[in-house]
Amino acid sequence: MENDERLLRLLALKRCEKPLPGSLDNVVTEFHRRLRHEEIRRAQSSPAVLWSRLMDALLVEPLSLLRHVATGAAVAAGVMIGLGTLTLQKPAGAIPAVAQSSLRIDLEPSDDAAVRALVPARADALSLEAMADPDLGRQLARPLVPEPHAMPVSFDEANIVF
């Protein structure tokens, strides 16, 4: 006898097993008892209702739930791909809008001290750079002349008002 056939005959023995005596006698009664108990429990606890519905969906209609999840995932993937495509369409060397602005800040010579007070570390660094590089030192030492179309600028301590 081949092992396959032996295995099938062995498995078929399980058909001869029987439930414990009386174990199926009160199934309906027990069903109604549990149903009543669960209804009371559900009425008392709303999170349990949500959980039970989720479990119902998982255990009773898993394919339906799977379809909903798959649809949601497909929509989310579509949105992500759409956003990704829009991002990729931007030119690689694009300059940020702020950097493209024609706005310029021109400082009065008297403002130099105020700028240094606002950014002391940078100012010190510039001084050191100026000491090391005579050209840079000369540029920094040159008085700043306002351009004709420059917007007026005023400094009010930490608040810059245009």
């Binding site: 199934v27 069903f31 549990r34 149903l35 039970s52 479990m55 119902d56 009773v60 209609e61």
Partner: peptide, 13 residues
């Protein structure tokens, strides 16, 4: 019993 209760609850669907 759990099967029967879940089936009963899902009967409308």
């Amino acid at each position: 019993q759990e099967t029967l209760i879940r089936a009963f609850r899902a009967m409308p669907r």
